[in-house]
Design a protein around this nucleic acid. Structure first.
Lengths: 227, 227
DNA sequence: AAAACCAATCCTGCATACAAGAACGGCGAT
DNA sequence: ATCGCCGTTCTTGTATGCAGGATTGGTTTT
């Protein structure tokens, strides 16, 4: 398993996009990246190409690569699909979870509880992620897990701006409790339903700030390169 | 929208993989492909890289690219997710379909009926695909449509071997009728349920011949390069 | 003064060149 | 005779070179 340069670059750049170092709409110059990482343009191009296939960057022929900008409508659609992934994972997890899965979910759920008690919304954000990943794993469908985590990552640059909604933490945790109960009771339909709503509600709340987000993006576009 | 060489190549090679010209496990030599398409290795590499991100080919560092081989377990998982896509599309289509969507679905359904009457299973295979695509479109979730069609294509090399199960055509069509009825009655839950079973049943039938399929793959592996 | 046109520059896309790791075959040793 | 070792060859991975389109700035024209 030799790590090729392009894959390292892909992971690096992906991390920076997800981490918010590069913002949607921002230009990704091949030469700058190549110089910054101390390689030639070739592996950079190949990394960007992969990221384009993943949907994280957009390559416009002869016009360079930019961090993918996701429009309002599409973002809502992606959340709809995300909700379905979660819902499916919950249904499968309820039926298939092992003792180890149960232990891990309990652990993550407890960590969320701890974050709520400390009113640490940043930490809740992280633990929430881990909680959901534990459910993906408990679904025992590796392909689903991959798809769900991929979409999760893809949405992350947009999700992170959501930390403004701090008061949602308590509601979210209450929903987590329902999710855990349903899964542990092996009630797949219940888990499915609660999880779908859990995400859909997030999506609807999203509608609220999506407008402002779009304003951000447009402002950034105007600054670094109009459409 | 200038079509760059790498994207043409990607589509071309993708088509050949989906079409079964290249079989799972088969080697994809950069130089051969480059010569065959009359270009240099660079765009070929970039095309292969994209196909790798899509999961159609597997690139092992320093060891070349092969058509992705999907194991039994993973194939079943992919069908599970496929069933969920269909189920979701059906639920959304029931709620959101327009008159145009309804007309298109009717049209495709009629085409399937025609294929059944003529007992033309090859044509039914094609029309069935179009029928399902019409439902994706009627979901009015473009992202879902993309995900569903992408997975559909990815499964196609394996699906095509299924034409052996010709007697399923009548059962399939009966299920289609239920799907159409549910969607037109705007009964999202019913459409969702019927569609999930429609695909899941296919998946279960798959289990039957997956063993033989795996044997094929292994035989091919032994012939063109062991693991 | 604003808009359009033109030229120079920059960047992308493809081709080619070079280096290094992996597969393959032959040879030798046990 | 079979197994293992070593050198050759082939293929991949990265760097560089070159051509063409896009962008930008200045100039001209209305």
């Amino acid at each position: 398993m030799t790590k090729t340069s392009r894959n390292s670059l892909r992971d690096q750049i992906e991390g920076e996009i997800i981490g918010g170092q590069y913002l949607p709409g921002q230009r990704l110059d091949e030469l700058s990246l190549a110089e910054r990482f101390g390689v030639s343009r070739t592996p950079v191009r190949e990394a960007l190409m992969q990221l384009a296939s993943m949907g994280l960057v957009e390559i416009r022929p002869r016009r360079g690569a930019i961090v993918a900008q996701i429009g309002t409508e599409r973002l809502i659609q992606m959340f709809e699909v995300m909700a379905e992934y979660e819902s499916m994972a919950g249904r499968l997890a309820a039926r298939r979870h092992t003792d180890a899965d149960r232990a891990l979910i309990s652990e993550r759920h407890a960590a969320c509880a701890d974050a709520v008690e400390r009113n640490d919304s940043a930490r809740y954000y992280e633990e929430n992620e881990a909680f959901h990943f534990a459910i993906y794993a408990a679904s025992h469908n590796e392909f689903l897990r991959e798809q769900a985590t991929a979409l999760h990552r893809r949405l992350k640059p947009y999700r992170r701006l959501r930390q403004r909604f701090r008061n949602r933490m308590h509601i979210s945790f209450a929903e987590h409790q329902q999710i855990v109960d349903a899964i542990f009771a092996m009630d797949g339909e219940k888990a499915s339903e609660v999880l779908r709503n859990h995400i859909i509600i997030q999506g609807e709340q999203f509608s609220d700030f999506i407008a402002s987000l779009q304003m951000d993006v447009q402002a950034r576009q105007a600054g670094s390169g109009p459409a």
